[in-house]
């Protein structure tokens, strides 16, 4: 039987704003951050982190239907 799906809103922050427009990603209902990371495509070599409600998410945190996830590039300097 096919797994139930959840919808996650994904939005790039900072230098990813242009590359990763706000859009919805459909994942299996037991999806974790790691699954989302595999699904999105970003510039090679860019380290990223995922945030939900301003809090950084570990890669094995479970996602929920309707979550909005910010994809934050970890480019430092300035």
């Amino acid at each position: 039987m096919e797994k139930e799906k959840i919808g996650i809103t994904v939005e790039g922050a900072g230098v990813l704003r242009k590359e990763l427009f706000k859009h919805t990603v459909t994942l299996d209902c037991d999806a974790r951050v790691e699954d989302l990371a595999k699904k999105i495509k970003i510039k090679k070599g860019l380290q990223i982190a995922f945030f939900r409600n301003g809090k950084r998410l570990n890669r094995n945190v479970k996602l929920h239907d309707g979550d909005t996830i910010k994809v934050v590039p970890l480019v430092f300097g300035g």
Partner: peptide, 19 residues
């Protein structure tokens, strides 16, 4: 370098903010 060229040194202020 690409980020710096396109967006300047403030290019990732938004990313810094989340961390």
């Amino acid at each position: 370098s690409q980020v710096l060229h396109e967006f300047g040194s403030a290019g990732n202020l938004e990313g810094h903010m989340y961390t």
